[in-house]
Design a protein around this nucleic acid. Structure first.
Lengths: 231, 231
DNA sequence: CAACTTATTATGTCTGCACATAATAACTGT
DNA sequence: ACAGTTATTATGTGCAGACATAATAAGTTG
């Protein structure tokens, strides 16, 4: 009997058994102790491998209940959301950005709801366009909750864009992110130099610090943009 | 000195030090042994916490080089790609689907390239529409490489087993996935019962078994669809 | 000084053991 | 039969020690 003593090897062996139907979907697989004995390794090593597969959605684990092959494995695609400047520079293009305005006003109702603001509360609106080699790449419509980050009021954004400022000052916060498609409206078309009605890839993101919203942003990518990932 | 002996607590403490700027972006943080001493726990526990943060893109770790705070933390959004039937049923709607055709023919060049097929090779084309409460939800244009999965030939003309078989097998294979937006063409509009030009959310996915492509599919979601995620 | 070899170092992983925890099964008394 | 308690079980996690590995620094030789 060949020993399997690295968690990657165990992960691969378990995957092989699943895809070869030796362990069927929905079926309970042997416990960690049994597998550790079979593979001639420690239980912790088996645990590491199975935990990895559970994180990936291939296995479902429950205390006392054991481990079973996910009946409907939810594929998890991990999307990297890079900083726009780095994304553009990573494509070997010159990055520029310009602000379209900067107003402290009451946001539209959709933003109020997303950011959980009262109907009288004002927020800072900072629309901007990011360019790659002078070509419009992304139209960013950002709202900032000044009550959450009052410091931003005094920031001039010379040489740094709002996104990166927020990353530095409000980094590592959690949030929701939505991906969708939308037809370019007049404003989108004007700023992205495309035609009205063109299909745009849209990302809506709202980030929070504790129970307070920091910023809500709508990113409209120029036509032709696509996000890659692996599954 | 208060002991911190769970990896989640250590993870939280490290996050606190990063967001409070105690450890600045790009900066080298203490080694595992040092942190283990400080927190009064085992090195393995610190390792688990730091590994978690490295996986999340917050930290960058290199052997011998140590651990540093990521200068440009790449936000990772994990998208769940469920099976369409479950997604629709999960919204409390009735699921149905119908095949638009089933032909063994030479795919268009774009598919040939994606699937790495020669220009003379044929593939099985299975277009289908998925419905939620009788309303078109998704138009799926799928190509299957019969040379990679010849078994499907036996089942492919029996009924829906082919698709189920494919879902099962493609479920555990690796592949690329692209997200984009596109204007509905005549065919899209007809099948999704929307207007030509409507912005559609598009997923292109090609899955592989070893060096051979199994299937390449274009999913065109009906207008209004959006994908949610957390970061 | 450059090219090569060796030592050092921080992370990566494995082991064997222990205890914690959640979920379930078995048991209990009424 | 039922509600409440206890036992059991598989996973979850922590610890100390050991060795593996990759990357770098230090040392050596031509």
């Amino acid at each position: 009997m060949k020993k399997i003593t690295t968690w990657q090897a165990i992960e691969a062996e378990v995957m092989r058994r699943i895809s070869s139907k030796m362990w069927q979907a929905g079926e309970l697989i042997p416990g960690e102790i049994g597998l550790a004995e079979e593979f001639g390794c420690a239980r912790a090593t088996v645990n590491r491998a199975l935990r990895q597969l559970a994180d990936a959605g291939i296995l479902e684990r429950r205390r006392k209940g054991g481990t079973r092959v996910a009946r409907y494995p939810v594929r998890k695609a991990t999307l990297d959301i890079p900083i726009t400047r780095l994304e553009i520079e990573g494509r070997g293009k010159a990055y520029e950005h310009s602000f379209i305005g900067r107003k402290f006003k009451r946001p539209p109702q959709s933003i109020q709801e997303k950011m959980n603001l009262s109907s009288t509360q004002k927020a800072l609106h900072i629309p901007a366009v990011h360019y790659a080699d002078k070509v419009p790449f992304l139209y960013e419509s950002r709202w900032v909750n000044l009550e959450a980050v009052p410091q931003i009021k005094d920031e001039s954004f010379v040489g740094i864009n709002a996104n990166e400022w927020l990353i530095e000052h409000a980094a590592y916060s959690r949030g929701d992110i939505h991906f969708s498609a939308a037809n370019a409206k007049a404003k989108d078309a004007e700023l992205l130099k495309c035609n009205i009605g063109d299909a745009l890839f849209i990302i809506d993101r709202t980030t929070w610090h504790r129970e307070q919203s920091i910023t809500s942003v709508r990113l409209a990518y120029a036509p032709g943009f696509h996000m890659k990932s692996q599954i």
